[in-house]
Amino acid sequence: MLPYWLLIPAFVIVLATTIYPLAYSFVTSFREWDLTKQRRPDGFVGFDNYLHAASESGFQNSLWVTTIFVVTSVALTLVIAMSLALLLRRKGRMHTFTRIVLILPFAMSPALIGVSYRFMFNPEFGVLAKGLGAVFPALEGMPWLADPNLAMAILVLTDVWHWAPYMTFMCLGGLASIPRETEEAARIDGASYLRIFFGIILPQMKGVLLVTAVLKTIFALKMFDQVVTLTGGGPGTSTETLAFFVFNVGFKWYDMGYASALAWILTAIMMLISIWYVRMLLSDRKMATA
């Protein structure tokens, strides 16, 4: 019985803090509940909340914004993380120093990251806004966060700055588990560096990169803090991600039924990705063992 007793405390916590709220919001998503009007939820309205989402422009916008954010941020993070891992895997004093430096962004509060980038991209006295303008005259006087596309770009930038170092460590872990011999053999056979990377390193990193990609996708879908502190969803609704939109519906407009339905749509997206991820990983394992 001991194995079960050891599980109980943690399991009670998980049950109470995630499974229960999940079930609760699932039920709420089928009800009408405007918190500004009534204290208790109204009757069940079936799939109305979900149908509402399908036809509402705010939701559609947030879905589009989220897609753009996730795709660019995941792609950039992966490419940068993999490159940094290749750069950092050798031994050396500067390599070690840079590796230590890379710990910092992950430890930094995402809300604070948003705040400091907002400061640095302030068109009047932001150090990056001014600095970039001085180096590249074409960027002089850019509206930065007041421009929808640039605001999205900066949002992606903060996210990549925050996560690429973490993902670099994951890639480094993957690189470390590749036996050196195959690479050395290829070098002795006279393969070029690019050839070695694409022919030998990349195929063996497939599993790690897959895990990294999915984790990053999940984190990107969850990303919320910087939207609040960097752009506030703006300008207009140009950086209103799904997570931020749910937050607005729930805690600005207090439409609990609709917010729950939206939250569940977000959950469903994440679940689908995780299932797909487990599948990919399992088939990858099979291939590896076969």
Partner: peptide, 17 residues
Amino acid sequence: STQFIPAVVIVLPFFLM
């Protein structure tokens, strides 16, 4: 799998509770 649940989903019911 609870790691994959967005925090917004969890906080809604807790806010009400």
